[in-house]
């Protein structure tokens, strides 16, 4: 998870990966999840964090989390076998 911890994330959602040189844009919810993942939070804690910070209306937060983690794996920001547990 070192790659994730090394990411520089700005308040505007600009992300720089010093390992690959790649840059990204994240929205506020994704920024929140990245912060949580860096701190090693588990699935239920991440879902609770999102539900606490944002006004939700019945979305499947757990499924959205998996979708984001799929992108992170694709970009090599988390190991290929990584799953939120």
């Amino acid at each position: 998870m070192q790659r994730l911890r090394d990411l520089a994330i700005s308040d505007t959602g600009f992300v720089f990966d010093p390992f690959s040189g790649a840059t990204y844009t994240v929205n506020d919810t994704a920024r929140c999840v990245l912060d949580g993942l860096k701190r090693g939070l588990h699935r239920d804690e991440l879902v609770a964090l999102l539900a606490d910070r944002f006004e939700t209306s019945g979305e499947d937060l757990s499924r959205d989390l998996d979708d984001l983690v799929h992108s992170l794996r694709l970009f090599g920001l988390v190991p290929g076998a990584f799953e939120v547990v």
Partner: peptide, 11 residues
């Protein structure tokens, strides 16, 4: 440095 690029890509 990264700042102008960051500003262009996010704002």
């Amino acid at each position: 440095d990264m700042a102008p690029f960051s500003s262009m890509s996010t704002a």
